[in-house]
């Protein structure tokens, strides 16, 4: 059954009806849906903000994240090789719940939205106060007290969700380190665009595969400054679990150290706000054990390479004409930044 947009209604009107029916079930008959507004203009997912207002009782500030109603947009997203790794909305919501249960700060996921003739599949989260824009987290005075704590809290949070028992997890794709390398290698090859700098990076990583470590756990998959919610007290939530998969947990920590998420605060390796040693302290305190900085370094190199290839994916999405976009074309050239970063990291 595919959801269909009624041409006589706006997307918001159709969704409002869906939400009214659903909120009546959750919060009782007569619950109103107020201030419904679409947040992201992203083609791949829709996020909507609204309040559920029960006839008696407290107003519930909520976020809905659902698959795009526009099938074309969905198809485009799937056309990006990286997109094939993504989990469905059900799995993503479930991961929020499991991470929360394990002690990672996340917004609560009170319930899900099943796919029917009026809507695609999605899940609801609490709408928490705080900032997610990486640049603001690093720059604004409001977060001056939070910043020194973040690296430790990030490490702690990661240790908590990396520790979730594999048996509890929904079915997910698994990518051991060697396979993950191969995955990006094959994406790279699909461009038919030889790239000596990235090639050097692949070679370097291949030679040091034993430094990758051999643990195998839940991975957030896009654990970085930009996907965390911060308030003046510190880390309030780890967001955007759609790239989650099974793999080497160090991958998340290395990714957090890629220079692109430091927004110019280059001396703070972890997300532009902290040091690796703080993150590792937090990881240990969260029960993840003491990690070897060499392993993190391996995954930082890998993350840098991965980000470069993601830039190239977007560039080629434009070049191949799948989706003509000045933004994608421009991001394509940011691969040079990561190439530079990569070559600085290598020895």
């Amino acid at each position: 059954m595919d959801a269909v947009q009624n041409p006589d209604l706006t997307a918001g009107e159709q969704l409002a009806a869906v939400l009214r029916d659903r909120m009546a079930v959750e919060y009782g008959p007569g619950t109103k849906v107020e201030d419904l507004v679409r947040l992201s203009g992203g083609a791949s997912r829709e996020t909507w903000s609204f309040d559920a207002v029960p006839p008696s009782g407290a107003r519930q500030p909520l976020i809905l994240k659902r698959d795009p109603m526009d099938r074309q947009a969905d198809k485009q997203f799937e056309g990006v090789p990286e997109g094939r790794l993504a989990v469905d909305r059900w799995t993503e919501g479930r991961l929020f719940q499991l991470a929360g249960g394990a002690g990672t700060p996340v917004p609560e996921v009170p319930f899900f939205l099943a796919r029917d003739e009026r809507t695609t599949e999605g899940f609801f989260t609490q709408r928490l106060e705080g900032e997610t824009l990486g640049r603001r987290i690093l720059r604004e005075d409001t977060y001056a007290g939070a910043r020194p704590k973040l690296a430790f809290q990030i490490g702690h949070a990661a240790a908590r969700f990396h520790g979730i028992d594999l048996d509890l997890l929904p079915p997910m794709r698994g990518l051991p380190a060697a396979e993950e390398l191969l995955h990006y290698r094959s994406i790279m090859d699909s461009f038919h665009q030889p790239h000596a700098g990235f090639e050097y990076g692949f070679r370097w990583l291949q030679e040091r595969l034993e430094q990758a470590g051999d643990r195998y756990t839940l991975n957030h998959g896009d654990f970085r400054n930009g996907n965390i919610l911060v308030n003046p007290d510190g880390l309030r939530g780890v967001l955007d679990w759609e790239s989650a998969h099974l793999g080497n947990p160090n991958s998340d920590l290395g990714w957090m150290c890629v220079r692109s998420w430091r927004y110019g605060y280059h001396d703070k390796v972890v997300g532009g706000f902290g040091d690796v040693s703080e993150m590792l302290d937090g990881y240990e305190a969260g029960g993840g054990g003491r990690l070897d900085p060499a392993e993190i370094y391996f995954w930082q190199v890998f993350g840098t390479l991965r980000w470069g290839i993601l830039c190239m994916i977007l560039g080629f999405t434009h070049i191949d004409g799948e989706q003509r976009s000045i933004e994608y074309a421009a991001i394509g050239r940011r691969a040079a930044e990561t190439e530079y970063d990569l070559l600085q990291l290598l020895n």
């Binding site: 190239m312 560039g315 434009h318 070049i319 691969a335």
Partner: peptide
């Protein structure tokens, strides 16, 4: 000129299409 893609020509084309 580096061979990175989008090439300069492809970027100019993208800007022209944008306009």
């Amino acid at each position: 000129m580096p061979t990175d893609r989008p090439t300069a020509a492809e970027l100019v084309e993208a800007v022209r299409e944008f306009l």
